[in-house]
Amino acid sequence: MARAAASIALGVALFAAAPLSGVPLGGASALAAPPAQIKTQVPGYYRLGLGSFEVTALYDGFVDLHVGLLKGMGVEQIQSLLARMFLEHTEGVQTAVNAYLVHTGERLILVDAGSAACFGPTLGQVVANIRAAGYAPEAVDTVLLTHLHPDHVCGLLSADGSVAFPNATVWAAQEDVDYWLSEAIAEAAPEGNRPFFTMARQAVEPYQAAGRFRSFGRNDALLPGVTVIPTPGHTPGHTSYLFDSGGQKLLVWGDVVHSHSVQFRHPEVALEFDTDQDAAITARRAVFARAVEEGWRIAGAHLPFPGLGRMRAEAEGFAWVPVEFGPIRDSR
């Protein structure tokens, strides 16, 4: 019996080692070179159901955010928090720029428009990703701006300077309009900051000329299912938008957070670009607490794409819980 078993084992081993139909032992891959690497990423969009609303996250691209722009914490501690999240920061931390398209069933609303060509070749993909997601820019009827920084407004224009969303009415907070579109404030600003004012004015001018640029106050009602949530500090009129469908709520909060690895755990860390750092910290603390208390979903312009998820409180600060990839389901 033992001798028979040994013979069978030897036969199996010899069969496994033998070439099949003249194919070398290395397998079929030895016959030809593998295909070329693709070297491109998938289209930058992701969909989420919110009650009867459909939310599409849009990837505009990325910027490398230098750690020196974070204020209120020592460099070594910041680097430790980045290392904890395995983030490379030698040349700056890769930071997403996101926009959000919300189909309410009656309106197609875009929150922020991306940067177009204002900040270089790593950005400017919002319109392309709207098309990849199955929509046309012409179908957008409303654009809500969280604020008038170039990475949120330059995408209102196409490369040739024409309007990118020809059928949309564009809305921004009155405080931001009064600040960023003021030539007097621009002239008084440090020289290095003046291009921000110029880019904001240029982005909205064609919409103003067409009578499709409007401003709102902090307590104004804009659209059914959309509530204005003032979060000033990053800019004077920085605004977040709370979308509500059947009690399911999503807060699109713009630039409340720039560094997810640092500012969730330490909301007291500000950004050099904050117009009023103390006010930005106050707004961040308040919206963090409210988002946790009320269980809101969050959409963040500079959170890792798709920038969708929830927050939870922890012993030290807060934590970000990103959305899990999956099919569109009834959100609960």
Rank of each mutant, 00 (worst) to 15 (best):
G309E: 07
A319V: 07
A286F: 07
I298E: 00
G300T: 05
P304E: 11
A319G: 10
D274M: 06
L271H: 13
L308I: 14
A279F: 03
A315I: 06
F305V: 05
R290M: 12
Q277M: 13
R297E: 09
M311P: 01
L271F: 14
D274I: 02
A291H: 04
M311R: 00
E294R: 14
A283G: 15
I281G: 04
R284S: 04
H302A: 08
A301D: 06
E294N: 11
A280T: 09
E294Q: 15
G295I: 10
A299T: 02
G295W: 08
F273S: 15
Q277H: 10
A299M: 07
E272C: 04
P306L: 08
F273N: 12
E314I: 07
R297G: 11
A299Q: 01
G317Q: 06
A315H: 09
A313M: 08
G307V: 06
F273P: 00
P306W: 09
A319S: 14
I298L: 15
V292Y: 04
V292N: 05
V292D: 02
V287R: 02
G300H: 05
F305C: 03
R312K: 15
F288Y: 14
A283R: 06
R285W: 11
L308G: 00
A289Y: 11
W296G: 02
I298N: 01
D278F: 02
P306T: 12
A286Q: 14
A286N: 12
R310P: 00
F305E: 04
R284Q: 08
H302V: 05
L308H: 10
Q277T: 06
W296D: 02
D276E: 07
T282K: 14
T275S: 13
P306V: 10
F318T: 01
A279L: 13
D278M: 05
W320D: 01
W320Y: 13
A279N: 02
A289F: 12
D276K: 02
T282H: 07
A270N: 06
A301Y: 00
M311G: 00
A270I: 06
E316K: 09
I281Y: 06
E272W: 12
Q277Y: 01
R285H: 15
G300C: 07
R285F: 11
G300L: 08
E293F: 04
G307H: 02
V287D: 02
L271N: 12
L308F: 15
L271C: 11
G309L: 08
F288N: 01
G295D: 08
G317K: 03
A291E: 02
R284G: 04
T275D: 13
R290H: 12
A291K: 01
T282I: 12
V287K: 03
A301S: 15
R310G: 10
A283P: 09
W320F: 13
A291P: 01
F318P: 00
R310H: 11
A313F: 04
L271S: 08
